[in-house]
């Protein structure tokens, strides 16, 4: 549910983000804005840096240069008076992370806990909710993703699609302002992709701000307000889906689309 400001101030702002992994320059000056309620899909070939960018948003990766701003507050850093910056406290970083929900390609459910326990874990231990309240919330979220009957199941017993839906419920449990998805359907068998996309579409309809790294063109076309195309660490093109898919401007975009749709332009 939407819980950001209703104005057009961007919830997320990325400014000149650079990231080096050793010698490799993976993010080469990314600028991005995501407004409240927007659904942004990030697409691009492997190695383009899309996952790295997403992980920088919630500070799972630390950028080498540049800034990520959540509601105008820098994520992970405090700006000193003299313009220098130093690493923020763990507590602040965690607080910021709790305002963003993340769904991973490999689901990453905690295998020693049941589905319900996975969902309740952060609300209890980070959000301070009582066990009772967390349990009710978990049940509501399980109903939302259609897995109420699996609340006591362990991840090992669930299909990939079910695990991912639980992972989405877990990410929603902290009432995030924005949901980050890192290739949520790439690791799923084809017949299980639909159930996850259905939940994500439902979420989008409800007004959630979403940043989705995906290969799934159908989903991007149907749900995205804006497609951001990345290649070799740079944002190459940004456009609403209709424009992006029908009238791509940049040469590299055209090549990429040709490869994944095998449609000549």
């Amino acid at each position: 549910m939407m819980s950001g400001s209703m104005t057009s101030t961007p919830i997320i702002r990325v400014q000149n983000l650079h990231k080096w992994f050793g010698e490799a320059h993976v993010l080469k000056g990314i600028d991005l804005e995501v407004k409240a309620g927007e659904k942004v899909c990030i697409m691009g070939p492997s190695g383009s840096g899309k996952s790295t960018l997403l992980r920088c948003l919630n500070f799972l990766e630390e950028a080498s240069k540049g800034m990520v701003l959540l509601d105008d507050h820098p994520v992970g850093y405090i700006e000193e008076a003299d313009g220098k910056r130093r690493r923020d406290t763990e507590a602040n970083i965690n607080r910021m992370r709790a305002r963003m929900g993340m769904v991973f390609q490999s689901f990453n459910l905690w295998t020693h806990m049941t589905a319900a326990a996975n969902i309740m874990e952060a609300p209890i231990h980070v959000g301070g909710l009582s066990r009772q309240a967390a349990g009710e919330k978990a049940l509501k979220l399980l109903r939302l993703v259609g897995l109420e009957d699996k609340k006591d199941a362990y991840p090992a017993r669930l299909s990939g699609g079910q695990q991912q839906r639980i992972a989405i419920a877990r990410a929603l449990a902290m009432d995030p302002e924005i949901m980050l998805f890192d290739e949520p359907t790439s690791a799923l068998d084809p017949e299980l992709v639909g159930e996850v996309l259905a939940v994500m579409s439902e979420l989008a309809r409800g007004g959630m701000t979403m940043v989705v790294v995906t290969h799934d063109m159908g989903f991007a076309r149907a749900v995205a307000d804006r497609i951001v195309f990345m290649d070799h660490g740079q944002v190459v093109e940004e456009a609403p889906p209709s424009t992006f898919f029908e009238q791509p401007k940049n040469e590299r975009t055209i090549q990429f689309l040709a490869k994944i749709t095998s449609r000549p332009f």
Partner: peptide, 23 residues
Amino acid sequence: IPKGQLDAAKACGMRSGLIWRRI
């Protein structure tokens, strides 16, 4: 223990002591 589970815990805002104890 798959590193992804620790990522998921961090993404929820759990601090390292908590991650160690619960995960």
